[in-house]
Design a protein around this nucleic acid. Structure first.
Lengths: 98, 98
DNA sequence: GCATCTCTTTCCACATCGGAAAGGGAGAAC
DNA sequence: GTTCTCCCTTTCCGATGTGGAAAGAGATGC
């Protein structure tokens, strides 16, 4: 019945996708702080999203330090949007009773 | 950061709450079929919701067979509504970028 | 009694998760 | 040019969650 993608549904990744969908690119450290997770935890979640083809990783050995920039792929945006729609469908089922 | 309740967020329980919130009472078998899970799986998820104070179980040894009726408690409705609001907040963050 | 229906509980194997710590890899410092 | 530091990655670990199968339990119906 459900079209809830488990790769996206996990709280950390769901919120990561929401943040990523709100900007072209987001820095690793910014995402880590926003989600309030450790480096390793974020890295592991991003790996899952990347392996699912939802996130693109860009390493920029930019001015001085190296930084990692994350963004949703087209497939990622699409999957996230579908996920949100599925959640909204759930919620509207609920709201219909009020 | 997140106000996503893990007891509610798990897909099976999230959908169970959505269904329960759309009716006064729902029969065990109907919920099981709607969620497409086995008896044991539904029973275990309901137990978690019950222990969290979100679901009330009513056993009706009614006409012939015994039936189990489920409903959200006031706390359950409140928690589910809060959860939906948290999800909507996430989604709106995302939509702001479009 | 004995079977039947309707859950509930137990057992088990497996996946997921987070934290700590060790491991790179790329510049910066000296 | 070796060492240091920064910025992630990966590994290791224990804890938790999940589903399926099967046994159990409680209330009828025969």
């Amino acid at each position: 019945m459900s079209s809830l993608d488990p790769v996206i549904h996990a709280p950390v990744r769901l919120q990561a996708c929401a943040i990523l969908s709100s900007a072209d690119e987001v820095e690793f450290a910014l995402l880590r702080d926003a989600l309030e997770v450790s480096d390793s935890v974020l890295s592991k979640h991003l790996k899952q999203l990347e392996e699912a083809g939802f996130v693109k990783v860009r390493k920029a050995a930019a001015n001085g330090r190296q930084r990692t920039w994350l963004s949703l792929t087209a497939a990622g945006s699409k999957a996230f949007a579908a996920h949100v729609r599925a959640l909204q469908a759930l919620a509207s089922t609920a709201l219909a009773a009020e």
